[in-house]
């Protein structure tokens, strides 16, 4: 049954995943090409200075890709379920609603992680050719809030899609926007590596993920089912 639920999610997500995969690959190739071009046109020690002291990153064009990806994944996954009350089909499956939600959310998050891992792997691989480990590490730390914002957008959009009450939807939308904006607050690469920052980010993501179960629980109350 769980496999069937996961398979259902894959059927919905498949087209969007491949499109996003292509987009992520394209953006990463662009960033890698840009890095190669930088190193062929400037002294390496100057580029090291720019990234270490000035905090420049060659993959800044990726900044908004993860949260947009999160929104697209949520839309691709959940819009087919909530159109015309189709959510009732899932609510009536002989599984607990929490199980169905966990499968859905877990699969969506895994797909997002795949895209995030791709970004991280490409950045690490292309950086390693030109930079020492310390700079590779700081670049991965710089990528972390971008990907975390994507995951927050995915969870938040899921809450908005599943919550039947209009006032709560609006509030959830506001929370999602402000949480994503907070994660993307301008900061130096690596600024999110402090324990307080990591704890804050982890808590935001966990709470938003759990809120999807709350929205799902409300589906049995109002008869709207979107």
């Amino acid at each position: 049954m769980l496999l069937a639920l996961v398979w259902k999610e894959w059927l919905k997500l498949r087209p969007a995943f491949f499109v996003l995969l292509a987009v992520h690959v394209a953006m990463n190739v662009w960033a890698a090409a840009g890095l190669r071009s930088l190193f062929s046109g400037a002294h390496p020690e100057v580029l090291w200075y720019q990234t270490i002291i000035l905090g420049n990153i060659h993959f800044d064009m990726l900044r908004h890709v993860p949260w947009i990806s999160g929104l697209i994944l949520a839309g691709a996954q959940h819009l087919p379920e909530i159109r015309d009350k189709r959510l009732r089909l899932t609510l009536h499956l002989p599984v607990r609603a929490e199980t169905a939600m966990a499968c859905s959310l877990g699969f969506g998050a895994c797909v997002f992680f795949l895209l995030a891992m791709l970004d991280g792997a490409v950045i690490a691989a292309t950086d390693s050719a030109h930079y020492p480990a310390e700079i590779v590490a700081i670049h991965l730390w710089a990528l972390l809030p971008m990907e975390a914002a994507g995951l927050a957008a995915y969870f938040g959009a899921t809450v908005v899609f599943f919550e039947p009450s209009t006032s709560r939807r609006l509030h959830a939308l506001l929370l999602t926007i402000t949480a994503v904006a907070m994660i993307l607050v301008p900061a130096r690469p690596g600024a999110w590596s402090s324990p307080g920052a990591l704890a804050l980010g982890l808590f935001l993501l966990t709470a938003l993920a759990m809120a999807t179960f709350l929205a799902m629980a409300h589906q049995r109350l109002t008869g709207k089912n979107q």
Partner: peptide, 15 residues
């Protein structure tokens, strides 16, 4: 789960 989720969401709101 709904209770914990609700309190978590309210905490996010406060933050």
């Amino acid at each position: 789960i709904a209770t914990i989720a609700r309190q978590g969401l309210l905490f996010v709101n406060v933050l």
